[in-house]
Every structure is written in C-alpha cells, then in structure tokens.
Write a protein that binds this DNA or RNA. Structure first.
Length: 450
RNA sequence: GGAGAGGUGGCCGAGCGGCUGAAGGCAGCUGCCUGCUAAGCAGUUGUAGGGGUAAAACCCUACCGGGGGUUCGAAUCCCCCCCUCUCCGCCA
C-alpha cells in the first residue's frame, strides 16, 4: 500500500513536515549575521529573490522559543519537586496549582513556534544557493565565458546532415514507432543504434571506474520526495518531474538524486573522502516549458540515458575536486575524438542548487553549433545541509557538512548525436570512434543495410 | 496481502511513569603506571535549538523510529504511521 496518499493529502501532517521541513537549506545563523551580503550574492542570479521575510520570521521564532523554554524550565523544576514530595509520602497538592495552565501555555507556544519554523523553512527551501564569489556576473547563457576549447571542428567535403536524418536513413533510430509507443520526445533505437547506446554506457563506466577511481553504483530509478528535497529539485521544481501516481515516488531526472542520497543522514568518515561514485541511470524529465524546443531528435527527450559522476568531499578540497571531475567528463569526449568547449556559467545562468558550474558543450556539425553534453557543478554544502550529510574533521572535531558535486560523464543520447554528426560520411555511413569499437564487437562503421 | 517479533547513545545492550542524556559492556580520547607489544587504574567522550561571551566558560530546552494523546511529570501508558526481521501467501 502506498504510504504516500496519506502524506500527499494530509497537508500539514507531521510526516509531510518531516519530508519537507526537517532540512536546513542556507545556514540560518549565517543568514542572521550576513543577511545583506547574502542578499547581494543572490541578487546576482537576477531572479528577484527577496530575503526580507527572513528576519521577522526568525525573530518571531526565537521569541516564542525563549518564552516556551522559560516555562518548561519552571515546569520541570516543579515536577521534580512533586516527585520528591510524593516519594517522601508528603502532600504535593499545593504545587499542582496552575501547572495545568502552564502546560497548556507551553503547548500552544510550541505549536506557534513550530508553525513559525515551518514557515521559515518553507521560505528558505525555495531560496537558491549562493553563487561562488569567483563566478562571473551575467544575465544568461550569452554571458558565459569559455574557459577552454579542445580539439577542432571537423571539416566536411559535403554538407553535414543532422543526426535525425542520419539515424533514420541508417535504420538505427525510429522516431515514428517510438511515438506509437510513448508519444513525442521518445526514441526507439534499433540494431546498431541500440548497440551504440549500450556501448557508450559501458565505455563511460569503464573509463571512470578503471581510470578515474569512481565506484560504480546502480540505483533505484525512482526516489522518494525526501530525496528530491535533499538535492534541491523539490519543492520548487515539481513540474519538471514525473510523479508516480498514488506513491511518494518520482522517476529520477538524473542519477544525482539517488546517488547523492546514498549518504543522506549519514556521517562520513573523513579518511574516506572524497567519496566518488559513477552511475548509469535513465533520466526522466517532463521538459515542461520547453514546448517547441528541439522537438525533433535525440537532443531533448522525456527519457534519456546518462552516466553520472558524483563526489562527496571535504570543503577545502571541493573546488579542486570539481576541476578533476570536469576533466574526467571531458576525457570521454577526448577519447571519442569529439571537439568541445568548456563554459563557466555566469551568475544568471547558474542552476538552483549550484554555487559554480561548468558546462561542457560538444560541437554538432549537423546543427552548426555547440550543445551542452555535460554540466559539472559544485553545490558546496547546499545539498549536504538539505540531505544532512556530514563528516567529522580531524580528531573528534565538530561535525561539518561535506561538499557535494556532480557532473554528467556524459549524457549518452547527446553523445550518440555527436558521434553520428561528427563521424558521418558522404555515403551516409558513420565511422565508429576507435575507442568505442571494443564495445561494439569490433564494428568500425555503421552502414545502411542491403 | 495475512500472522508474529522488534526499533534505545559510534556499536552491543538494560530500563518499562519521577532521582535516566539515559545502567553495564565494547570502541574512542586524556592522564597515571608498567618496559614489552598489550594489560591495569582513574577521568572523559552525543546531537540540535535558545540565551550568554570579543571568543570561550557557562545556563536553559529538546531529542530513546516518526506524529499525536493521557499526566504536574513519559524512553516508560494509549492511538496512528513508518521501518527491520521471521513464518505463510503471491510473484519476476
């Protein structure tokens, strides 16, 4: 029986509160002391984020707690006294007077404080992460600087085709029948197309596990709402997710969700850091709000495959680890001989949970443009707070939140696009990059059959 | 889906209305001792919130799966939920 119906319908139930409101998001103490600075940093995101409700909620909450705690102290003292008297078989009746009223008052103060805290957390859960100071200011993707360009655009003696035309002509991608099965934005891969998809997954996983030291994991492809709050997709972006009807589960839109939540509510051993995982998952996205964009082809699908890289690190190391993680993702493109560039996202283009993000964009000759094929982000302690993932630094020091990060390594569907478009031949065939051939039974070229 | 058992601190495990943040053990840390590779002795070791401080110290509150209830007072009693284990059923 799905437990979720209850949760979903009982709007203010304790269970729901646990799911949505138990986590910290931005550090409340930091905000209290640096509200202005935080506001400035958030303002650079350009989304009109207003922190002003914070102070009044915070002050109200503290006032209520203070009053309730004072009354509790008194109640505890009197109760203890009653206990002693009773033990000595003396009459404690004189102390009982007014205690009921005090208890009632405590109860209502606690309730009010709880409501206030819920409101505060509800508010804070929708506030995005603070951009790293090193992230350039900017409005949108047009302001993202390129940090490096690797390889060169291939030249063609003919006019290069798009992957849809190439794939359909080769009989390896069938959008028509996919539509029959699931509608628009789905693909049916056939024969060597299906093999290519599978080969890429294995190639990427092998590279990251054998050469980059990631541990391979294979996760559930659905996760509970709690997980999504942990990584930041909820509560704000529910419209992008496929929810399982009657359940508390959503289909994963990225392996980031299940993999990061592996260590939710855990304290990691400092010696084990950085913990590095790689995972293949299918990814399911509604792509709400992208109607009319990339409707044809593999670029924007409701379901696509992705190999993900996820790390849990100590705070001091996280930006070094982000560089390494980005390089690990780039290595896939290098081995496949694909030309790409790495962009540093400006403040206005940064994702909700991220403090700093590199996008890797691969060159697609059929579209005559670069397209994002990987996005590598450091979330600092934003997700760790929400998901409660800590470690104990040094010998017996205070618990601290880890930093989390992740990046695609890579999006498989878009890699298929890149291979088809970059390795297409004039006769319509497609050369398989040498690095991939061992994964395709030695196949060197995909050609049109008979 | 049916029946039963159980969820307590880093771990094991007691407690079953007040003196229990929680016995005892293990592990960890700190001293002492010993010279033999580890034992003995003593002390110490949770998290979060609020107050306090220059920062500490310190004080208060909460926490024994989650939520609610009874009570002056709940780890302990009552109700609901979740999870784990065993048996049965069903099933890839």
């Amino acid at each position: 029986m799905p437990p979720v119906l209850l949760r979903a319908s009982a709007c203010c139930s304790g269970v729901l509160r646990k799911i949505f409101l138990e986590e910290d998001m931005l550090d409340i103490k930091y905000l209290r002391e640096n509200l202005k600075e935080a506001g400035e940093r958030l303002k650079k995101r350009g989304k009109g984020i207003d922190l002003s409700p914070f102070s009044s909620l915070d002050e109200k909450r503290r006032g209520l707690i203070k009053e309730a705690d004072g009354l509790k102290e008194r109640r505890n003292a009197v109760s203890e006294e009653i206990g002693k008297l009773k033990k000595e078989k003396k009459d404690a009746g004189g102390l009982l007077g007014g205690m009921q009223e005090i208890s009632q008052r405590i109860k209502s103060l606690d309730k009010e404080a709880q409501q206030c805290e819920d409101e505060l957390k509800r508010f804070l859960l929708e506030i995005p992460n603070l951009p790293h100071p090193g992230v350039p200011d900017g409005k949108d993707e047009n302001d993202n600087p390129a940090v490096r360009v690797v390889g060169e655009k291939p030249s063609f003696s003919f006019s290069p085709k798009g992957h849809v035309e190439i794939g359909e002509a080769l009989g390896i991608i069938d959008f028509g029948r996919a539509g029959k099965i699931a509608g628009a934005r789905f693909a049916l891969m056939k024969g060597e197309g299906a093999l290519l998809e599978r080969a890429l997954i294995n190639f990427m996983l092998d590279l990251h596990t054998r050469e980059h030291n990631y541990k391979e994991v294979w996760t559930p492809f659905m996760a509970t709402a709690e997980c999504f709050v942990g990584t930041g997709q909820l509560p704000k972006f529910e419209e992008d997710l496929f929810k399982i009807e009657g359940w508390d589960h959503y289909l994963v839109p990225t392996a980031e969700v299940p993999v990061t939540n592996i260590h939710r509510e855990e304290t990691l051993d400092e010696a084990s850091l950085p913990v590095c995982y790689t995972a293949y998952t299918p990814c399911f996205r509604k792509e709400a709000g992208s109607y009319g964009k990339d409707v044809k082809g593999l670029i924007r699908q409701h379901q696509f495959d992705k190999v993900e890289l996820v790390k849990f690190t100590a705070p001091e190391r996280s930006y070094d680890e982000l560089e390494k993680l980005t390089n690990d993702a780039e290595e896939v493109l290098k081995r496949l001989g694909l030309h790409y560039r790495v962009m540093l996202l400006c403040t206005g283009d940064l994702g909700f949970s991220s403090a700093k993000t590199y996008d890797i964009e691969v060159w697609l000759p059929g579209q005559d443009r670069y397209r994002e094929i990987s996005s590598c982000s450091n979330f600092e302690d934003f997700q760790a707070r929400r998901a409660d993932i800590k470690y104990r630094p040094g010998h017996g020091g205070k618990l601290k939140f880890v930093h989390t990060m992740n990046g695609s390594g890579l999006a498989v569907g878009r890699t298929v696009v890149a291979i088809l478009e970059n390795y297409q031949q004039q006769d319509g065939s497609v050369i398989i990059p040498p690095a991939l051939r061992p994964y395709m039974g030695g196949l060197e070229k995909i050609e049109r059959k008979g």
